[in-house]
Computed example of a mutant assay.
Amino acid sequence: MNAAADSGLVFPWAVLMGAGFGLLRLSTHDFWAMTPREICAAFAEPPGHAAFSRLRFEQLMQAFPDASALGKEQP
């Protein structure tokens, strides 16, 4: 046995495979060819792509209103 088996921790293969195949749409070949570092990078949040704050969202809504909000029909 090894240290991981002795600790009772189980690697979450089902979660990782579900995300790789379902979320990233990787082929089985591409998924199993990835290194652990590549897998971590694939799921990391890109720098500078954090969610909008409520204030920023409202500013964008004012700057770019929906056409229906202006009383216009959308195509």
Rank of each mutant, 00 (worst) to 15 (best):
F64R: 08
E45F: 02
F52R: 10
D30Q: 13
A19K: 08
F31A: 07
N2P: 00
V10R: 06
L24I: 04
E73D: 10
F43I: 04
F43D: 03
A42M: 13
V15L: 12
K72W: 13
C40I: 15
M34K: 15
G18K: 05
S27L: 09
L9V: 10
Q74W: 11
A5R: 11
R56N: 01
H49M: 05
S68E: 15
R54L: 09
S68M: 12
A41K: 10
F57M: 11
A14R: 07
P46D: 07
P47V: 04
D30T: 14
F52Y: 13
F21P: 00
A4Q: 15
M34G: 01
A44K: 08
F11L: 04
H49I: 02
A51D: 14
A14S: 06
Q74E: 12
M1V: 06
P12K: 00
G8L: 04
L60N: 06
D30E: 12
A42K: 15
P47Y: 01
S68Q: 14
C40Q: 13
E73A: 08
I39W: 14
A5W: 14
R37W: 07
A41H: 08
G18W: 06
L60Y: 11
F64C: 09
G22I: 01
E38M: 02
F57I: 12
P47K: 03
A67Q: 05
P12H: 01
A14L: 09
F31G: 03
M34F: 11
L23E: 12
F31D: 02
G20W: 06
V10P: 00
W13A: 00
G8A: 04
L70N: 03
Q74S: 09
